[in-house]
Write a protein that binds this DNA or RNA. Sequence first.
DNA 1: AGTACCACCTGACGGC
DNA 2: TGCCGTCAGGTGGTAC
Length: 257
Amino acid sequence: MAVFRRYLDSTSLHQTIESVHVSRLSDLTTLSHRELSDSLQGREFEKSGRHGKFLFVSMEGRGDSLVLHFGMTGFLKYYRSPASAPDHIRLRLDFTNGYHLAYSCQRLLGRIDLTGDIQEFVEKQGLGPDALELNESEFRHLMASKRGGIKSALMDQSLVAGIGNVYSDEILFQAKIHPKASVTDLSGSDYSRLFGTMRQVLLTAIRSRVEVERFPSHYLTQRRQEGERCPNCGVEIDIAKVQGRTSYYCPQCQASP
DNA sequence: AGTACCACCTGACGGC
DNA sequence: TGCCGTCAGGTGGTAC
């Protein structure tokens, strides 16, 4: 989301929203087209914020915010010519300068909302602290407060916000920890390593603009396919369901718990 | 409190 | 050719 946030900041701030268009809105929100229009039309975005996988775009004046969740297939596109419009636009804002900002979300797993108070939204949503705003001792403390699998702990948005299935696999791979390990299997130095790789993986994803092809070659993320081999040791990557999620890991580098 | 499983939804893919 | 099942992903619900 940090990448979408930057994109939005560099394209869409301080311009008047002339009109609001929607499609398949009811799959993404309980808001009506009318409610969205009433809040957005005639207003300008002033600044943005992010917490975990949620993007908040505050408007001038009343300080209320548009909330976007991208759900995996979601993204933003700013464009002028209709020929440049992406597919699956669910929300389109037309600015008075003739440009459009589209929120595209093919599989409709994202979410659109409005809030008058971002902190309150975060609390109501039950989100833990953002993964990049934690220090190591807070991270350890949170992980220690949970039992069960480390993978589900990393992905638990109420514990730490911002990590999904793909990045949790990458974080565990970089930390050389097996995805089936339990939080109680891990030592202090495991947690220390895990914290470091969590930051490194998330910052790398942002730096790579979330484009998998730009990820470093020693990353596992671009090898999420059957028959691929470990970038470290060359052993074939294992695919297994861990806590119900498809997980990729190296059976050699990530020691069995 | 944890896990397991289902549903949402689309489009790609494999099998027949 | 076309139909049908399966899968990916994040979240949220239910049942054990």
